[in-house]
């Protein structure tokens, strides 16, 4: 899983968010080091929805336009946990190796 996809799943892990909310949260989570573009976000959302990791939560009308909120599915949460464990294991491995030097 690539960093943008991981950040999107992570941004949705506490509550449903709309597109711009995901962008802001992803920027905050990465402390501004990764800045997602809107095209990347929706390309990823389409793939995530297709895979059943993300789904539409609700649609609200704001300023006369619909606004869609997305949420993590159960399967999406499981994938996020697995990916976090994988990354954690990798970081642990890297730390041990660097400590030996």
């Amino acid at each position: 899983m690539q960093d943008p996809t991981y950040l999107i799943l992570l941004a949705l892990s506490d509550r449903p968010r709309h597109g711009y909310g995901i962008l802001l949260e992803a920027s905050e989570l990465s402390r501004g080091t990764i800045r997602l573009g809107p095209g990347t976000l929706y390309g990823a959302l389409e793939r995530l929805e297709e895979a059943g990791h993300v789904e539409l939560d609700r649609e609200e009308i704001e300023e006369g336009r619909p606004r869609r909120y997305y949420r993590l599915t159960r399967r999406g949460r499981r994938v996020l946990v697995e990916e976090t464990e994988r990354r954690e294991a990798l970081v642990g491995l890297a730390k041990r190796r660097l400590a030996h030097r």
Binding site: H18, G19, Y20, L23, G37, G39, Y42, P66, R67
Partner: peptide
């Protein structure tokens, strides 16, 4: 519609174009 809205929200009121980085990202 969603993509238009989110892209507009990344822009300030003074901008007449999205940020070049976002333009490139969209293309």
């Amino acid at each position: 519609e969603d993509l238009v809205r989110t892209t507009l929200e990344t822009c300030t009121a003074e901008q007449s174009w999205p940020h070049p980085r976002d333009v490139l990202d969209l293309v």
